[in-house]
């Protein structure tokens, strides 16, 4: 029997695997919707942009493509609207047609999707409340903040199940358990893939540091907004894995995002309707 702690995922080879990923799966009901929209000649680009901002996979693929050396805007484009203007309809069509769907859909896929979309809504709402410029960029960072979890579900589903069960047993935040068992967490994975895909730093940093908001040297405000949105949504019961405890927020959050209780109440009231309607949308279409 081995006495030392068993490594269930090798960091170096998993990172390599992540960097070579080119196609993340989309949820089947979303892909159906996009395909229907493609067939309708009346669909406007704006309508597409609005729907796409609910899908982590296509949003990340679109941003990857527009920031690639091939198009010639590396590290430049951080919103879906701008990306669509530059990529055009044909490329969008190609991306949608060539999308995979989640096979063997894991039970966490919908809660994770719901969580990501609501954190995106909350990030936008907080940025607006604080009168920050470029609120769409905050929404994108919020949408993609847990992209590392998607990758774990897709690329290491068995190992990740072990991590989730352990976190539930130990009653601690998922990222801490990931760190203990894997030696890296989902935010690290987010950072790896964003850097590999040459996404702008204003997205990469909030995605990579949303559990360590004091660590980066720049974009503190962006990290703090996404972290705050994450906490807000989880406190509303919108976590990706149910009933895991919330960690105490880093003091930098309060400094960067000085929200009063009144403002927080207003934000939550603003999010609730969509929070609930998204919840109703998902499970109905699972089967």
């Amino acid at each position: 029997m081995k006495m030392e702690k068993e490594v269930i995922l090798d960091k170096i080879s998993f990172r390599k695997k992540v960097e070579q990923l080119s196609n993340l799966p989309t949820l089947p009901n979303l892909l159906d919707k996009f395909t229907r929209m493609l067939k309708d000649p009346k669909t406007s680009m704006a309508a597409f942009g609005k729907e796409l901002s609910k899908d982590q996979m296509l949003t990340s693929k679109i941003l990857k493509l527009v920031n690639s050396a091939f198009y010639g805007f590396p590290g430049r484009i951080s919103t879906v609207t701008n990306a669509l203007v530059l990529l055009g309809y044909d490329a969008l069509k190609g991306l949608i047609i060539s999308s995979n769907i989640f096979e063997n859909l894991s039970p966490e896929a919908y809660p994770l999707w719901h969580h990501s979309v609501t954190v995106s809504l909350a990030s936008r709402a907080i940025a607006r409340e604080l009168s920050l410029p470029d609120i769409e960029e905050f929404a994108v960072a919020g949408l993609l903040h847990d992209i590392g979890k998607v990758i774990l579900h897709v690329e290491a589903s068995e190992e990740y199940r072990t991590v989730i069960n352990q976190a539930k047993k130990a009653k601690q935040p998922i990222w801490q358990t990931e760190g203990e068992i894997l030696g890296f967490d989902h935010a690290n994975i987010g950072l790896w893939i964003c850097e590999e895909w040459k996404l702008p730093k204003k997205l990469t940093i909030p995605i990579g540091y949303h559990h360590m908001p004091a660590a980066p040297k720049e974009y503190h405000m962006r990290v703090a907004v996404v972290t705050m949105a994450d906490i807000l949504v989880r406190s509303m019961g919108g976590g990706a894995e149910d009933d895991l405890p919330l960690e105490t927020p880093d003091p930098i959050i309060e400094k960067q995002v000085p929200l009063t209780l009144k403002q927080i109440r207003k934000l939550i009231e603003g999010i609730v309707p969509e929070f609930e309607s998204l919840k109703r949308l998902a499970p109905k279409e699972i089967n």
């Binding site: 680009m45 198009y71 010639g72 805007f73 203007v85 530059l86 990529l87 055009g88 309809y89």
Partner: peptide
Amino acid sequence: GDEAIRMTARIITNVTRK
């Protein structure tokens, strides 16, 4: 400057083709 030129080219092409 080159990026601005490429963006302009993409915008004109995408709009006219659509």
